[in-house]
């Protein structure tokens, strides 16, 4: 397997933004998920090749962070916050409703939908809250969450847009969002234009603007001496 030329070009633009290639490993892991829907061994090998790391080093990074998924999450990953502020306002009932509507326990996925509990997603003023492909919906109830799962199954939206989710299934928000956005998520990874992982992929990172490169010794490994 290899990536399309456009993806490789994008990856090289991202690598050029950092003083050391290795720093691009996290963005590139998202791009690998975009290519295959999840993180595969082959995807991680490609990231290793581009960043100058070994596949084992890339895997050690990927396995540290919960948003890098080596198992398929279907098309829509629903993450229900269950930390303290959401818990106080009924997050467990929302999670149970989501599990029941999807017919899946948290931590599992079918071809369409994945369910998980999430730790605090920074929507405490609009608790309880959840994410669909990391796009936020605040002030949900068990009943609305169930409707949301049915909507995902039936309407099969190509793009998950937070404003649409909030209008259809949300309630109280942490603050006035004020500005509508037409961008959104196209898979179970964060929609960020420079990575090519969003519905609309501009603006890109400014490529090739950096000076002051190549004049510095490589970073010693922490704890290596």
């Amino acid at each position: 397997m290899s990536w399309p030329a456009e993806t490789i070009a994008r990856a090289n633009d991202i690598i050029a933004r950092y003083p050391e290639r290795r720093s691009a490993v996290m963005p590139l892991l998202y791009m690998a998920m975009r290519e295959e829907g999840r993180l595969t061994d082959e995807g991680m090998r490609l990231v290793a090749g581009l960043t100058g790391l070994t596949p084992a080093q890339v895997q050690s990074v990927a396995s540290f962070y919960v948003m890098y998924k080596t198992e398929s999450q279907g098309k829509y990953l629903v993450s229900v916050c269950s930390s303290i502020s959401c818990f106080l306002l009924g997050a467990d009932e929302v999670l149970h409703a989501v599990e029941e509507a999807a017919g899946l326990p948290a931590g599992e996925a079918d071809d369409e939908i994945g369910i998980e509990h999430a730790e605090c997603i920074g929507a405490c003023g609009g608790a309880p809250a959840c994410l669909v492909n990391y796009e936020l919906v605040e002030g949900v109830t068990a009943a609305k969450a169930k409707e949301m799962i049915e909507w995902l199954r039936n309407a099969k939206p190509e793009v998950i847009n937070a404003d649409e989710l909030q209008t259809l299934f949300g309630g109280r928000r942490s603050f006035d969002w004020a500005i509508k956005e037409d961008n959104g998520a196209i898979g179970p990874y964060p929609a960020f234009p420079p990575f090519g992982t969003a519905a609309h992929n501009t603006p890109a990172l400014e490529p090739g603007r950096l000076a002051t490169r190549n004049s510095r010794p490589a970073t010693p490994e922490v704890g290596a001496s």
């Binding site: 999430a118 937070a162 960020f192 234009p193």
Partner: peptide, 12 residues
């Protein structure tokens, strides 16, 4: 943070 794609898009 990765769970803030919208704030990240605005900053970008």
């Amino acid at each position: 943070r990765g769970e803030y794609p919208k704030p990240a898009r605005r900053v970008q």
